[in-house]
Design a protein around this nucleic acid. Structure first.
Lengths: 154, 154
DNA sequence: CCGAAATACTCAGTGCACTGAGCAAGTCAA
DNA sequence: TTGACTTGCTCAGTGCACTGAGTATTTCGG
C-alpha cells in the first residue's frame, strides 16, 4: 500500500537512462571500447600528456576507477604511461597511433548513435534535455565539494 | 584536435547524473541499502509474492543482477525466498517484517533526497525532466525488443 | 507418453564505480 | 635539514550491470 511510483524518482530514471545508453552503445558503437573508455581517449586527444588524476577529473571518474580504465586501455596498446621526470608521483598519459585511430573511428559512430538515441526529442527538447541534466548534476556535485570560502588570501 | 564536447553526449551526462545521485543517496538516505535495492523492496511492497524474474522486469534489472541484489537482501533478512509449489522453477519473494520497516523508513528519506536533488529545477522543469528522460529511455528500450507483430491471434 | 522447446535460475567472466587503507614522492615550515 | 603534511597512485573490498553457458523444471506437439 505504501509503495512509491519510481517513475518520479530521478535516481531510478538515471539508472534506466544509462542502461538504455549502454545497450545502444554496444550495438552501434563498439563491444570492446566502452563509453567511459572513449571519454578517456577523448580527454587525451584534447590534452595529451595529462596525468591520471587530471584525466579522471576531466571525465568524472574517481582515482580507483580511472586507474582500472587506463590499465585496460594500456593493455590494448591504446595509450602509453610514463613517469613524469619532474614529479615522480605522476604518470603522464599519451595516446598511441592506434589510440588516436580508435578515437577517430569511434567519434563517427558515437555521433550516429547519439542521433538515434535522441531521435524521440525535437531539437529544442534535446537542448533542454542537456541543460536540465547538467544543472541537476552540477548542483549535486556542488553539494559534495562545499566550495572554497569566498574570502581572499588573509 | 578532433576532440569532442562530452557535455552534448547523453551517455556521458547520464553517467554523471547517476554518480551525482549515488553520492547524495549515500549521504541522505542510506549507506547500507542502495537505490536498486530500495527499488526491489518497493516492488515487493506493491506486489508481494512476485518471482525473481518479474521483480527484475519491474525495476529494470537483468536476471543476473537481480539475483545478486535479492541474495544480498536475503542475507540481511529483509526478504524471504521460497520455491513456488505450483512451479518448481520459480522462487516467490516476500518481504519480512524488517523489510517492510526498512522500506517505510527509506521512503521518507528518499522523498527528502529527491527534493534536494531536484531543487535546481522549477516544478515545470521537473516534470519536463522526467518526461524527456522517460521518452528517451523507453524509445531506446523499444529498439532492443523489436516489439511483437501487430497481428491479432491467428 | 515422450522428446523438443521454453522458462527460471545459477555461475563464470568482464567492466564500471565508490570507499578506506597504505605507500612513495614531493613540499614546506621550523 | 628534518619532520609533518600533501599528493599521486595502488590495493582490497563491496556493489551494480551485462553476456554467454549450463542446470532443472515445466509445457507442448506428435
Amino acid at each position: 500500500m505504501a509503495a512509491v511510483d519510481l517513475t518520479t524518482h530521478p535516481g531510478h530514471l538515471a539508472r534506466r537512462l544509462q542502461q538504455a545508453h549502454y545497450l545502444l552503445w554496444n550495438t552501434m558503437v563498439s563491444e570492446e571500447i566502452t563509453s567511459p573508455q572513449f571519454a578517456v581517449l577523448n580527454a587525451l586527444v584534447a590534452e595529451p600528456g595529462l596525468d591520471q588524476r587530471t584525466v579522471g577529473e576531466r571525465v568524472g571518474l574517481d582515482r580507483s576507477t580511472i586507474a582500472e580504465v587506463i590499465s585496460r586501455l594500456g593493455r590494448r596498446g591504446l595509450l602509453d604511461k610514463v613517469r613524469d621526470p619532474q614529479d615522480g608521483r605522476r604518470f603522464l598519459l599519451r595516446l598511441t597511433e592506434e589510440g588516436v585511430r580508435t578515437h577517430r573511428r569511434l567519434t563517427v559512430r558515437t555521433a550516429r548513435m547519439n542521433q538515434v538515441f535522441l531521435a524521440p526529442l525535437s531539437a529544442d527538447e534535446q537542448s533542454l534535455f542537456f541543460e536540465l541534466i547538467r544543472r541537476v548534476s552540477d548542483a549535486a556535485e556542488g553539494l559534495r565539494n562545499p566550495a572554497e570560502p569566498l574570502v581572499g588570501r588573509p
